[in-house]
Amino acid sequence: MSRKKFKERLLNGMIYLVLALALLITLLPVGWVLSTSVKTGAEIFAKPPRWIPHSPTLANYKDVLFGSSIPNAFKNSFLVGIMTSFAALLLGGSAGYAFARFKFRGNKFLSLFMLISQMLPLTVLMIPMYYMENAAGIVDTKTGLAAAHLVISLPLVTWMAKGYFKGIPKEVEEAAIVDGCSTLQVLTRILLPLLKPALAATGIYAFISSWNEFALANVLTRSPQSITVPIALNEFSSFFKVDWGDTMAAAMLITIPIVAAFMLVQKQFVEGLASGAVKG
């Protein structure tokens, strides 16, 4: 018996070791970004490279916050994200409600089309999208990019909202109707208050995907009035001589709001993952 216990302990010890290694590999790039972001220009290229900077500095953050395209890109990203997630919630939320609650011809086809749309390659959509937006005169505007991001957020919100509405038992509604509520009253007084947290989380998730999106933004934005944070960050590291300190400080600043937003929606996000409603 004690031999078995010993073997068990040894095995668990080895598992901890493997997990610690996995954790180390996971955090290696994160740690390196953080470390680089607080180094002076001279220390960044020190040989051999050091993990803990000898003279840590916040100068890179100051550069990024007060002397770069990042604050403006932050503003753009924020506005684009708000526009797209608001529109997606309105359009996708109501479509999801109809998919879940009404029987109509084409229900299955349309809702599955929404599911499939989440897997469409953005590189394929970007070409027609560019010409359409060009014709409409909205290339290189925040509105144009927000509209393009609906390609991602609308199917996502529709599909998730459908699941949420389906999750509420029909009896709840029937009881309300017996009590004299109209369909619309049921929706606004009962379903929406019940689903407020879930729908808010979906909206935040739509916001995160817009914030992170690169391929479409890369084609549809070019000037300071519309470039978003991923584009601005990529410009940092595309110069002939990259200032890695500034780049990594910018990377940190871009990641923090996303990680924070993610913490808010972790639960719904994991459920969404399981239902296939999340785009990578």
Partner: peptide, 17 residues
């Protein structure tokens, strides 16, 4: 955490690493 980080940040961080 590795999954949550924005794609552009992942790519840039690894490019530097």
């Amino acid at each position: 955490i590795a999954w949550i980080i924005p794609g552009v940040v992942k790519a840039t961080a690894w490019k530097w690493l």
